[in-house]
Design a binder for these strands. Structure first.
Length: 277
DNA sequence: AGTAGTGTTCGGCC
DNA sequence: TGGCCGAACACTAC
């Protein structure tokens, strides 16, 4: 769900509700005054990076799906929705997402030039932002939503492999052609991601992300949690060149704690049989 | 069947 | 004041 292209898919999928009046508001979100939305018409749907935006006159509902969020259109699960919008003919259900209201003009709230999927995406602005932080490592730069809104861990790993740059290379030290390639590929890969995801063939195009071996035959990939973000990087030491030196290198390499892991779910729930969904 | 992950925010602590 | 860290969130493909 979470990366930018998935938000574009969602936006396209809900076009039938554009201009339609919300006639029912439910859900366990705590931050929405349900009466605020009731009987209001949806002016537009927008996306900014990983944000899905439901625009009303004078305010916008911001939806962020984080890692686990899901949605359903004209169908629903039996679990309570975080936000349910009912229309005269149809419904939109959002689960496990972060919801917020943004007051006022949405153009005031967002820098559209930072969104790799937006027509206002500005590569030069991205270049400026990166060169303002020359010591930032490339894996952090790509995940920085102020610079590359919409880019997530998959796109990060694939872009760095495509351009042959080691994730711990610093932004200021890589050749300018590589900097340009990084910015260019962030957008190109995002749109390829979009098409592959629509065709349900995204995973089979991954060259390094969640892979074991270098696609160019260099043997096992290196897999480490890197950068301030500590997100998993998959990369090939031979294909991806490292530039620049780091004073604080140790702090940018993280190992997950060994030993007993905590359960990642609080309660188990029996899956609902498909025929009841 | 148990686990890791397409992510961000928040409070607490130095 | 601010950076760093862990917890929380809560779904599902593999």
């Amino acid at each position: 769900m979470p990366e930018g292209p998935s938000m574009v898919i969602l936006k396209e999928a809900v076009q039938e509700f554009k201009g339609k009046k919300v006639v029912e508001v439910e859900g366990n979100t705590k931050v929405i005054d349900k009466d605020l939305l009731l009987n209001k018409a949806i002016v537009d749907f927008k996306t900014w990076g990983k944000h899905f935006l439901i625009c009303f006159k004078g305010f916008t509902v911001r939806v962020h799906f984080l890692l686990f969020g899901t949605y359903q259109i004209n169908e629903h699960k039996d679990t309570p929705a975080r936000l349910h919008l009912g229309f005269r003919d149809g419904e939109l259900n959002i689960y496990a997402a972060s919801i917020r209201i943004i007051e006022g003009d949405i153009d005031e709230a967002y820098d559209w030039t930072a969104d790799v999927m937006n027509e206002s995406w500005n590569p030069l602005a991205a270049k400026k932002k990166m060169l303002a932080r020359p010591d930032m490592v490339c894996c952090d730069a790509l995940l920085n939503q102020d610079i590359f809104a919409g880019v997530g861990n998959i796109i990060k790993n694939e872009v760095l492999f495509r351009i042959g740059i080691h994730p711990l290379s610093t932004v200021g030290a890589i050749p300018k052609t590589k900097l340009a390639a990084m910015i260019r590929e962030a957008k190109i890969y995002s749109f390829e991601f979009l098409e592959w995801k629509k065709a349900f063939v995204l995973k089979q195009h991954w060259l390094v992300h969640q892979q074991r071996n270098c696609p160019n035959g260099h043997g096992p990939l290196t897999i480490m949690h890197l950068g301030k973000t500590k997100r998993k990087s998959y990369f090939c030491e031979q294909c991806q060149k490292r530039y620049g030196t780091l004073e604080n290198e140790a702090s940018l390499i993280w190992k997950p704690p060994a030993g007993v892991r905590k359960p990642n779910r609080i309660a188990t729930r029996k899956p609902v049989p498909k025929k009841f969904r």
